[in-house]
């Protein structure tokens, strides 16, 4: 069995049973996604065939061309939704990675008045979902004048607590000797952070990216964005789906675009993400 690592305490029949179990559930997890991919390449007659066919027979890019045609002459062109999603995702993720790293470095490496209390509040905030704060958030947004702007999506995303938590746990593993050496050479804290800490926590950047990216990439604009020209790609997808059966092909194409990007990112960064996650534990 080349598939199975040789290890202590393992009996083959039990292994096989467990792998069968895994394969079964793997199929349950994967089939809807595989189906979504196939749908995007189905010509119309195959999309509506009954009983439905799982795999595409005559793959075509028609749906993608239709997508451009349908949205090109609508009031807000599709490229606008793309642009909005890309802006929100880019600024939200990059800002989050930078701000969370800046905050994580002192928390990970130094003790100063308030440091442990601050970290405790961050851990506490992992214990409830953002729904809890939705109503006061609206008031804060309207005070700031951010209602109906992309800022209402980008700025709160920058202070996503899970990112700070993971980054801090990962930075704790950096050897102190490295930072000490830089200090003896007279480097300032900011220089140390930017030139030494940041390049050494690349796996954690990618992890923060993989956690934050799908959230923003898949946002439908939330409760604070009303203007059509500020809406996102996922919102457009929802509208297309609501448009009913005539747009099934176009909807499948948008859904594919929405799902392929985050999954590809994860495939590329998987080993780095796992490396970061190994330090994710809650010690106390």
């Amino acid at each position: 069995m080349a598939l199975i690592k040789k290890r202590l305490n393992r009996s083959l029949p039990v292994s096989l049973m467990l792998f069968l179990f895994l394969a079964l559930f793997g199929a349950f997890m994967a089939l809807p996604l595989v189906y979504a991919v196939n749908n995007a390449f189905k010509p119309l007659d195959e999309l509506f065939i009954f009983p439905p066919r799982f795999f595409v027979r005559n793959p075509t890019f028609d749906n993608f061309f239709d997508l451009v045609a349908v949205m090109g002459d609508s009031w807000v062109p599709l490229s606008r939704y793309f642009f909005n999603t890309i802006v929100i995702t880019l600024f939200g993720t990059v800002g989050h990675i930078i701000l969370a790293s800046m905050a994580a470095y002192p928390l990970a490496k130094y003790k100063f008045p308030g440091s442990s209390a601050i970290f405790r509040v961050v851990v506490l905030s992992l214990m409830f979902s953002p729904h809890v704060t939705a109503i006061p958030n609206y008031m804060v947004m309207s005070r700031l004048g951010w209602i109906d702007t992309h800022l209402s999506l980008i700025v709160p995303a920058m202070a996503f607590p899970l990112g700070l938590f993971l980054m801090k746990q990962f930075m704790e593993q950096l050897p102190d000797a490295m930072l000490e050496a830089a200090k003896i050479d007279g480097a300032s804290e900011y220089r140390i952070f930017w030139k030494i800490v940041m390049p050494n926590v690349k796996p954690a950047w990618l992890t923060l990216l993989i956690l934050q990216f799908p959230v923003l990439w898949g946002t439908n604009g939330g409760d604070f964005v009303y203007s059509e020209e500020l809406k996102t790609l996922n919102y457009a997808l929802q509208q297309i789906i609501l448009g009913g059966i005539a747009r099934a092909g176009v909807g499948a194409a948008v859904a594919l675009i929405l799902m392929v990007v985050p999954i590809t990112l994860f495939i590329i960064s998987q080993s780095n993400v796992i490396q970061t996650m190994s330090s994710s534990g809650m010690k106390d």
Binding site: G26, A30, P32, A255, L258, M259
Partner: peptide, 18 residues
């Protein structure tokens, strides 16, 4: 297998397939 099991949680709105 990690990708297979993790993908649904980051695949955005694909749950509309359901």
């Amino acid at each position: 297998m990690t990708v297979i099991f993790y993908a649904p949680s980051i695949a955005g709105n694909v749950f509309f397939i359901w």
